[in-house]
Design a protein around this nucleic acid. Structure first.
Lengths: 368, 368
DNA sequence: TTGTAAGCGTTATCAA
DNA sequence: TTGATAACGCTTACAA
């Protein structure tokens, strides 16, 4: 329960009512609204010159530069981004819409993108789609209105309106977490289906035949769908099938993973000897649930995941999983976007490797 | 290793070179740069009227409204945020600088803030400080330049320059994760020292006297510092001490928690019977390390944390911890900021309760 | 190398 | 209820 405390309408000393234009007080410290013009006046040059110096374009004398920098410092001048954006038709802001931030792997990606953008002086606007296509479109729209120069998207299945809008507005974009050389859209990531095949093949090689999956919700999520498809393809390549009774779909969380395993174990038919989680959160949930219900991992049940979050290497038993180079994906996506904004050439399709990391949560199926 | 793939300078069909002003094509679908003026012309009214209708202020006739909405729809008009910001002196953007996003609890907070802001039509600009005061100042500066209307900060120990800048610019701000009725700054959170006292008191009540801590890095982090102070105060209130040999400081991650416990166990003196983690990530690391080195939790070692992340309830044994209502903190912080931006009164100091959740990772100290 | 001045797309103040 | 029109602060030809 929130307990009431200090209450104030006008700001109680700090956070004063948002000020109107206050004229600068002295020459030492400006108050608010010091403009380019003020700097120009003080430096005894034109606003055009100040602008040039500040943006370091065109030529100007050493001396002018000094006078300008001095004036800027003396007045505490801060450029007005909106004015700059209006005049230059560029906001120096990039957008990123991710499904959800509470998946640590996504949070790390956003962080990596922010780092990359900061290096080039771009700000990052974020929004979440909650895995809903409509919501994503809405968020993209809002961002476009806000004037973003480029945008990072997750996955490659977006509403046509998203692509249309972006193209019409000439806004650079890139699909991340996916790699599809045949896609007409720029992307940076890895082949999720291949990754699914890799995990499944590894388990098949160990001798498992009773393989089940606690997958992510596949609707509206191409990555989840492709991982399932990969697992299925690997099984079918060996004459096995991954039938529907062997797949449960759950949101990405540890407790959903636990719930998923319970659901799987309730189903008729032989008990699976290996379970693949749609991501590490689910896989870890599966491990915890198995352990807490007396199923030894990996002796009675092998478990594998996707992502390789920090916990994967630390839990006991440590988790066999597909290592996804998130930081790299998002940094490269940032490289791409910055390059496009600045009119430089850039690779449209970048493939990264997502390789299997074998740890302790998987072993051969129990003899029977 | 990134493998090269499609390469293009000019955009390969998608992502065309950022376009200059293209004139709208037909009356059905605009291309780019449809302005208020275009809408006004089509609706046969002035730009002032269109602006009024769009912002729903002032009065206008039903009919005018209809004509305008129609024109907007027909032309696919999208307002230009920078122009709007320039004219209205308001960007409808809020900033948030957090220490790091890879702590799931922070990520959840950012997500909650974004949700709250979206409801009121504000965008969220984010940046990370990496727990460094200088970096934080830099990020705040950048955001101010970008014209944010308000900003959410973490903790309450910020460089004086941060407060100065914000005050000078008349930008509303709020310190989150902390509650201090005596602070001159707006805040929304809980009393971290009290929370520290609560955990320690609980362990003391159980009979523990050998209590140690794997804390967060206290330098530049008031929350970490206050939690330590709380634990220390509780011990001292019972005539015990928390001496330096009983505290190790580590960054917030699971592997740091493991490392922290190892360090603690290497120290001379009696082995601790209870360890408090500076947050759940550290506490979970402590649990995992204990288990993997044969120390049973909670029988041989009790472990407690702070935050109550999702995993806390799911790990075995489940973690006793301080439940922090992040979503609530950040949503209320959003309420505050929006209110201040819009000139409405708002509570400057909001206290939330962070209560102890007792689970399975703690019990009485082993008899000896 | 520097200055002049015309925008950039809105909002907001006055009048009408 | 609506329309002119002057800002808003900066960039960027084009001149000088």
């Amino acid at each position: 329960m929130p307990q009431a405390a200090g209450f104030s309408a006008s700001g109680r000393g700090c956070n004063p009512p948002l000020s109107k234009r206050l004229h600068k007080t002295a020459e030492t410290d400006a108050d608010v609204a010091v403009t380019l013009k003020d700097v120009a006046d003080r430096a005894g040059v034109s606003t055009a010159t100040v602008s040039r110096v500040l943006n370091r374009q065109g030529r100007f004398s050493r001396e002018t530069e000094a006078r300008v920098s001095q004036a800027v410092a003396a007045l505490g001048y801060v450029p007005h981004a909106a004015a700059r954006a209006l005049a230059s038709r560029r906001s120096r802001t990039v957008g990123a819409v991710t499904a959800a931030l509470d998946n640590p792997i996504f949070a790390r990606g956003v962080q990596a993108l922010e780092n990359r953008l900061e290096r080039s002086g771009y700000g990052l606007l974020i929004a979440g789609s909650d895995y809903e296509a409509d919501r994503e479109l809405k968020q993209v729209r809002t961002m476009v209105e806000r004037g973003i120069d480029a945008i990072m998207l997750q996955g490659d299945s977006h509403l046509p309106e998203v692509y249309d809008l972006l193209r019409r507005k000439g806004i650079a974009y890139i699909n991340t977490w996916v790699y599809d050389p045949a896609s007409p859209h720029p992307c940076c990531g890895f082949d999720n289906e291949q990754a699914g095949r890799n995990v499944a093949d590894y388990l098949l090689d160990l001798g498992h035949t009773e393989i089940a999956m606690v997958a992510g919700i596949s609707e509206g999520n191409d990555r989840a769908r492709n991982r399932i498809a990969g697992v299925r393809a690997a099984l079918e390549a060996r004459g096995l099938t991954l039938d529907d009774a062997r797949i449960v779909e759950r949101p990405y969380s540890v407790s959903d993973g636990r719930d998923g395993l319970r659901a799987l174990l309730r189903r008729p038919g032989p008990r699976p000897t290996a379970v693949i989680g749609g991501n590490d959160l689910l896989a870890i949930g599966v491990i915890l649930e198995a352990q807490q219900s007396g199923l030894a991992v990996p002796d009675a049940l092998s478990v594998a995941g996707f992502d390789d979050i920090e916990l994967a290497a630390n839990i006991a038993p440590s988790l066999t999983t597909i290592h996804v180079p998130v930081e790299e994906i998002c940094t490269l996506a940032g490289d791409y976007l910055v390059a496009r904004i600045e009119g430089r050439p850039a690779r449209d399709h970048v493939a990264l490797e997502a390789r299997l990391v074998v740890r302790q949560s998987t072993t051969r199926p129990p003899a029977r």
